[in-house]
Simulated scan of single mutants.
Amino acid sequence: MWNFIAEKWRETINHWRDYPLRTGTVWMGRYRIERFLGMGSYGQAYTCTDIENGCAVLLKRSMPSKLELGRLLLERESHILKALDHPQIPKWIHYAKGGRDEALIMELIEGENLEHKMMVQGRTFTLQESLGTIKELIQPLKHLHQAGFVHRDVRIPNVLDRSGSIYLIDYGLACRIGEQLPEELRALLKETDSADNNASSLQGGSWAAVKRRMRKPYPSSDLYGLGHLFLFMMYAGYEHEEGQAERGWEEELELPQAVNHFIRRLLQQSEPGWLSAVQCEQDLEQLIAALA
């Protein structure tokens, strides 16, 4: 009984510690909280005004209840973002520390993510729009890979559209190419060597297996993520007929064979796959030109 009470008490304390900062609060004497954007497993995001210069910024704060582990993840993201300089990647501005509180300050990209467009607005995409989005995302990925890093989380929530310009955000899971994460961190992120990494489609294999494949510290993992992102965009306009048996994505979407082959290579279902975003980009440009 005592263990149960103690656990509930810890949960209450953690919820209190992780309660979002109030609008109007001036964090660290410099950043005025304007809006709470959301909370992930290890951090909180806010739009803020830097009162020293009046600029709007994004503040990503480590989750207080996650203690040192939350700060470690945030510091890793800060180091990686600081090393990058690309117009489709949020710019690093500052890393602030104060007691147990730490936050990453970066460029605020005002836009809508693809997940919101599809799930809330009911937005659908043509084949050309979907391929165009993939082409746009290859640009920041090329820069990221050439800098020696891999994103490891290329998904629709992490793609922002600002007036037609595409941005790749959230580098919280990024790492150096080939990096073996500390055991404690791997356990927390549920990255195990025994995972089934052969999920072949949105229908075949679990989404957990898909994510585990995306977490591999190699550029091909980001291309794999692009493949699934493309399928999500195409499925936004797909209507499943009642009573129809579930089929593979190639049968359901009825795409041109050249597109099927390209996506199979992104998903590494066809040989050879690509080892770099540069190689993938060259073939994608040829594909788009052939479909025009």
Rank of each mutant, 00 (worst) to 15 (best):
W2P: 03
R10H: 14
T12A: 13
T12L: 06
H15Y: 12
R17W: 07
D18A: 08
Y19H: 15
R30F: 05
R35E: 09
Y42C: 05
Y46P: 04
I51E: 07
E52N: 04
R61M: 13
L69I: 11
L73F: 14
E75F: 05
E77L: 03
L81K: 02
K82F: 03
A83Y: 00
L84P: 11
L84C: 01
I89Q: 13
I89N: 12
K91G: 12
K91E: 07
K91V: 10
Y95Q: 08
G99Y: 00
D101Y: 00
E112S: 15
K117Q: 11
G122E: 06
G122T: 05
R123F: 08
L127M: 01
Q128A: 15
E129F: 03
L131M: 00
L131S: 04
K135D: 14
K135T: 13
K135F: 15
L137F: 08
L137D: 00
H143K: 13
F149T: 12
R152Q: 10
V159F: 01
R162M: 03
I166D: 01
I169V: 14
C175M: 01
C175T: 15
I177N: 14
L185S: 05
L185D: 06
L188G: 01
E191W: 06
A195Q: 07
A195V: 11
N197C: 11
N198T: 15
A199S: 07
L202C: 13
Q203H: 13
Q203P: 04
A208P: 02
R213E: 11
P217E: 04
Y218I: 08
S221A: 15
Y224I: 03
Y224D: 10
Y235G: 01
Y238S: 08
H240W: 01
E242K: 14
Q244C: 01
A245G: 04
R247Y: 05
R247N: 12
E252R: 04
F262T: 10
L266D: 09
P272C: 09
P272G: 03
L275P: 01
Q282E: 12
L284A: 07
E285V: 15
A289E: 14
A292M: 10
